[in-house]
């Protein structure tokens, strides 16, 4: 058993040194804030470092999940008694989504308030499921319309608020699952969010206008 290591006394830093260290740390934090945090988190680029180092958020990423107001305005509905009229044809969508074991996916349509759609979906096994909506105004104010475990559903839907409305499906099993969804409605596009963090925007086709006589 050897002798214990000698304790070497260390002098405490003076107040002046502490002040200098604090100032340096504050200055460094301010530089990081201005050159990196503001461009990345807030899209502000006061000294141009965001552009130089590619730190600014890509506009395309944000646009992928939002819709130009003009596109939505063209979907605005006019109610006439029992009939609701839209200034353009509706869109249709048929999609097949594959869920590997224990994966989840969200598939949602962008609808303005009062716009409608009809839908049918089915899966080859019961899924954890929630039909819900995220308002454009406050995406965290999630509206739940139907939450249960089921393998299929069909229905109609009128959007209570402008936003993205659709389904969360989770595969609770160790087997691959396929979901088939068909819908028609006065939506603009769909967005898909997956548990592996990938996101995809789906552009949807207008239903063909019937030919005149």
């Amino acid at each position: 058993m050897g002798a214990p290591d000698p304790v070497i006394p260390v002098a405490l830093p003076s107040k002046a040194k502490l002040l200098v260290a604090t100032l340096v740390a504050s200055a460094a934090a301010a530089v990081i804030l201005v050159t990196a945090v503001l461009p990345v988190e807030y899209g502000l680029d006061p000294v141009g470092t965001g552009k130089v180092f590619g730190l600014l958020r890509e506009p395309a990423q944000d646009q992928a999940l939002t819709v130009p107001q003009g596109g939505d305005a063209s979907m605005a509905a006019v109610r006439q008694g029992a009939v609701t009229l839209y200034p353009r044809t509706y869109k249709v969508d048929t999609v097949e989504l594959v869920l590997e074991p224990y994966e989840y996916v969200e598939y949602k349509y962008h609808l303005i308030a009062d716009a409608g759609m009809i839908f049918s979906w089915s899966a080859n096994t019961p899924l954890v499921h929630e039909f819900h909506g995220d308002p454009d105004e406050n995406p965290h104010d999630v509206r739940s319309y139907d939450k249960s475990t089921k393998s299929n559903a069909s229905g109609s839907f009128i959007a209570p608020v402008t936003g993205i409305h659709g389904w969360f499906w989770e595969n609770p099993s160790g087997e691959r699952v396929t979901i088939k969804l068909t819908s028609a409605g006065f939506y603009t596009h769909a967005v898909e969010f997956r548990s592996d963090k990938t996101q995809r925007r789906h552009e949807l086709a207008d239903v063909p206008t019937p030919a005149g006589p």
Binding site: I32, V37, V40, E41, Y42, S195
Partner: peptide, 18 residues
Amino acid sequence: IALGLTAPAAAHEEFRVV
């Protein structure tokens, strides 16, 4: 102020690992 502005940089996301 610096702490308030930098706090969102530490915001975390939810991940699913299988």
